[in-house]
Amino acid sequence: MTGIRVSDSPQQRLRVGFVLATNFTLSAFSLFVDHLRLAADKDDRSRQIHCSWQILSSAPHPIRSSCGISISRDAPLDDPRTFDYIVVVGGLLQSYEPIDQTTVKWLQRAAAAGVTLIGMCTGTFILCRAGLMDQRPVCVSWYHRQDFVDAFPNHDVVSDQMFLDDGDRITCSGGGAAADVALHVIERNLGRSAGLKASHILLMGRDLTSSAQFRLQPQPPTLDPLIRKADRRVQRAILIMEQNMSCPVPIERIAASLTISSRQLERLFQNALGRKPQDFYRSLRLQYARALLETGQVSVTNVAIEAGFSDCAHFSRHFKLAYGISPRIYHRSAIKNLNAHPAIAASHAGVRIFPEL
């Protein structure tokens, strides 16, 4: 159970229903619901006075999270209009059927009734498969960006901010961003003080003037601590680079997306990292290429393409300058090493590549 029930309170100004996918992410759900809990009552008493929440399911059995902990439902799928928001919490992409067709149809009814739907973590995938995000941009985690592009190649996707508010649809990158969305929703419906109270009690202090600001915060960079201290525009530029390895984005376009000039972006990179953005971008792609070569599963030619180089000769020249060895020799050495250590080879299968400085 998620708290003490106070049904049909005349003071409730925020009603939230949760749909949990099979193997849902427990941390995203708990962060969101704990902010609601603390905003709903005085002190830490957890009564559902100012807002309410329920876990909804088409079946009476508990829903299993990705970490193995199961949560019981509070109510069946009744009239979706009794909620202001319905949060779909996703989880493992490998789950065969994250939600059943009964739940899909219920979400479609909710959308038709004008209820705001929130895709949390891979819950965005669920909303897209249900046809509820057509012609709408979505926000997904940088970690699942390629999975999303593979599943929905023609969909507009962003991975350089924590969440995206598109009116009656909100999509969220997941993880800690669940707290940001919860605060955004609480601030909108209960006021800023209610959101700040929840944040302070959870020791997640926010000193931003409004939820609109932390919505636009970039997702944390996957690189070293130096970048985490860099100007936010440098962080966002790097995220764009990371998400466009095989088809590099011109520096001019990256700068334009940040509403600054190329010269400004170059100065920011020089100040933060001591390098030009184009040089940094190339080093990212070379690190990505090296990691692909180390798997032993991708040919040098395909690695060059995946890393965004126009031809093998161009790729080989830059790779050797960076690492003092040709990519073909590096690739052969990696295959030899993997064959000598089968356990290492198995661990490389399907591994995600994280570039490093």
Rank of each mutant, 00 (worst) to 15 (best):
M204R: 06
L268C: 01
S246L: 07
P80H: 01
Q94V: 14
Q243W: 02
I170V: 09
G296H: 05
R328W: 01
Y85Q: 07
S65F: 03
Q219I: 12
A307V: 02
T295G: 02
R45T: 15
R332A: 10
A179T: 09
F152Y: 13
S27R: 06
S9G: 10
G91F: 10
L38T: 05
K320F: 05
G174W: 10
K197S: 02
D134I: 14
Y143S: 08
P98A: 13
R45N: 12
V16Y: 09
K276M: 13
R129G: 06
A40H: 04
Q287E: 15
L202N: 01
C121Q: 04
R275E: 15
W53H: 14
D224T: 12
R233Y: 01
A198N: 05
I170Q: 07
K229Y: 06
S58I: 03
M1N: 11
G176P: 09
Y96E: 12
R290Q: 11
Q264A: 03
S95I: 04
S141V: 00
V140H: 06
G3H: 07
P218T: 02
S193Q: 15
V157N: 06
P60L: 01
T82E: 11
V89K: 12
Q243G: 15
F24M: 07
L223E: 07
I344G: 00
G350L: 08
A28T: 14
R215V: 01
T295E: 02
D41F: 02
E97R: 14
F18W: 10
I305Q: 11
Q297N: 11
L56Q: 07
C67R: 09
D78K: 09
Y143N: 11
L56I: 01
G17W: 10
Q264R: 14
S141I: 01
T103M: 14
L14K: 11
C67N: 13
R169F: 10
I227V: 15
I201F: 06
C247Q: 15
N154T: 15
E242Q: 15
P153S: 07
T82K: 09
H50G: 03
D147T: 02
R45P: 00
L77N: 04
A212E: 13
L26K: 10
L202D: 00
L31R: 13
T122G: 10
L292M: 15
P327C: 08
W142C: 04
D79P: 00
L117V: 03
D207W: 12
S333L: 05
D160G: 10
D311P: 01
R192Q: 11
R145K: 14
S72A: 13
R282L: 09
I325T: 13
N337I: 07
A256Y: 08
R232Y: 08
L20E: 09
L77K: 07
F214L: 05
G274P: 01
Y288A: 05
R290H: 06
T209C: 12
F214P: 01
I86E: 10
I353M: 13
I254K: 11
L117Q: 03
P250R: 07
I4N: 08
I325N: 01
T82S: 11
A230M: 05
A230E: 08
K42F: 02
F24T: 04
R282D: 03
